[in-house]
Nucleic acid binder design. Structure first.
Length: 474
RNA sequence: CGGGGCGUAGCGCAGCUUGGUAGCGCACUUGCUUUGGGAGCAAGGGGUCGGGGGUUCGAAUCCCUCCGCCCCGACCA
């Protein structure tokens, strides 16, 4: 018997927890703030890794691996950086039964250890650019945790690059953000707002942070990818210098950029419904499930018919599974696979066998239709493509419906501070802080859509100097 | 770190007020019948009642103490 999923409208947080545990994506670990990513959830992560690796390689990046532990003297080298991260660093103080002479940080991010290594490797402008990416885990000691969205340990990808010029580094920062947008919108079907972080929301130690912001089903924002232009801050702190062709010794310009398993949390919250997950076909571990209705004397014939369909779809390169478990009824299986978010279900029974047809049931719309067995591979490919597009379109429509242009904060209150709000800002950090203390909302980004400032600061009513998108965030 | 909730079989819970053989539903095992939207019957297996201490003839239940987890808020991918 499957467990009930709490409806979104009753308790969104509980709905989220129900979905991720009952769809078998994760389980809670013995230590608070840690989780096990189970095979079904990890497979989604692997699709994300594949999609990114292809794009990273195509733009000249290589994967590498840096150590988990960072000596304290390295971590504190860049002043702003250490200030930003020190509250959430976990430390190793003992090893081999002895107290260590210098404590070692479990990496909260790797700029410092990467910087220390880069300074050893880079001597000449001929060594540049250095374009590396690392897939790893990091630890940030968080007070309040939620699976995928905020866990103490999480899996991510962090790119670290060094360039000869500022312009090249800034171009890298934008290029990587565009790769993220492409993966997140194209594979995960999550529409995003592209922008720049305000000074107060910037990565600790960065000169500029670009961001992708997504809107969850409860109207809260999720920062889903960031790309940082670090200027020469880290190059100076870690002595990353090169001899340029003019004979001058110069500091490199560095960038870093990252995305994490948080994306999976976003995927669930953007597409999920009261029946459970809804996975876009491109990242669905199982794209099609075949459910035989094997009744009485027809059982053997139906099953062999189902196997033929399975085989032909597999040959077409689809991820298909046949659910021939005979301890469950078809109805149970329908609900089970719907909860797990499988995009398309194919039902085959005695009727279909007789008419050489199958029934297709779409997870995105719930539609059922009977289609001919001939040409089924092509039909299924088309339907999956349509599901991928429909999920994106639905999410895009939701985003647009919950994105209001406003002139003052009272207008945001009418929407319960849910959704994205678009307004103007005077640029004062004091107003950014007032926004948060008064409404719980934060500046998500300064959107990069080219639209001009149109009015006064939504907080203080002084003339605006920047357009901002703001809202309550995870 | 504040506020709330909860620890009893794999999961969800009852039992605690008023101490007296540890129960229910689901899941699991076996058999038979079933199968086009969460199958039925029958017979089974499974427990340091979160840990420690105390009161008592006797503690899941009363007292003390520690631990853990979840949710909601303030900070963060």
């Amino acid at each position: 018997m499957l467990k009930e999923i709490t409806p979104k409208s009753v308790d969104y947080s509980q709905w989220y927890v129900d979905v991720i545990t009952k769809a078998d994506l994760v389980d809670y670990a013995p230590v608070k703030g840690f989780m096990v990513i189970k095979p079904y959830g990890y497979r989604i992560w692997e699709f994300i890794q594949d999609a990114m690796n292809v794009r990273f390689r195509a733009t000249g990046h290589e994967n590498a691996y840096f150590p988990l532990l960072i000596p304290e003297n390295l971590l504190i080298r860049e002043a702003e950086h250490v200030q930003g991260f020190s509250p959430e660093v976990a430390w190793v103080t003992e090893g081999g039964g002895e107290r260590l002479p210098e404590r070692l940080a479990i990496r909260p991010t790797s700029e410092t250890i990467v910087g220390a290594m880069y300074s050893k490797w880079i001597h000449s402008y001929r060594d540049l650019p250095v374009l590396m990416n690392q897939w790893s885990n990091v630890v940030r000691w968080e007070k309040a945790t939620r699976p995928f969205l905020r866990t103490t340990e999480f899996l991510w990808q962090e790119g670290h690059t060094v360039h000869r010029t500022q312009a090249e580094a800034e171009a890298e920062t934008s290029q990587q953000l565009e790769i993220y947008r492409d993966v997140i919108e194209g594979e995960l079907a999550i529409p995003v707002v592209v922008g720049q972080k305000s000074a107060g929301e910037r990565f600790a130690g960065a000169l500029n942070t670009l961001t992708l912001e997504a809107l969850m089903g409860d109207g809260r924002a999720l920062q889903i990818a960031t790309s940082h232009f670090l200027g020469q801050n880290f190059a100076q702190a870690f002595n990353i210098q090169f001899l340029d062709d003019d004979g001058a010794l110069k500091y490199g310009w560095t960038t870093s950029w990252g995305t994490s398993t948080r994306m999976i949390g976003g995927l669930i919250m953007v597409h999920g419904d009261d029946k459970g997950l809804r996975l876009p076909p491109k990242v669905a571990p199982i794209q099609v499930v075949v459910v035989p209705i094997a009744r009485g004397n027809d059982a053997t014939a139906v099953l062999s018919y189902a196997r033929k369909i399975l085989g032909s779809l597999q040959s077409a390169g689809l991820r298909v599974q046949l659910d021939s478990r005979d301890e469950y009824t078809p109805g149970y299986k329908y609900n089970d696979w719907e909860m797990r978010g499988v995009p398309l279900r194919i039902e085959v029974g005695p009727r279909d066998l007789k008419s050489q047809a199958v029934v297709l049931a779409r997870r995105d719309t719930g539609e059922k239709q009977t289609v001919n067995r001939d040409g089924l591979d092509l039909t299924v490919l088309k339907v999956l493509e349509s599901i991928q597009n429909t999920l994106f379109d639905q999410a895009k429509a939701y985003l647009q419906d919950h994105w209001q242009r406003i002139d003052n904060l009272a207008q945001a209150e009418e929407y319960g501070y849910r959704g994205f709000f678009d307004g103007d800002w005077c640029g004062a950090e004091a107003c950014a802080q007032d926004l948060q203390s008064q409404t719980g909302m934060t500046i998500r980004c300064l959107p990069l859509d080219g639209q001009a400032v149109g009015g006064d600061c939504v907080v203080c009513s002084q003339p605006g100097s920047a357009r901002i998108v703001f809202g309550r965030a995870y």
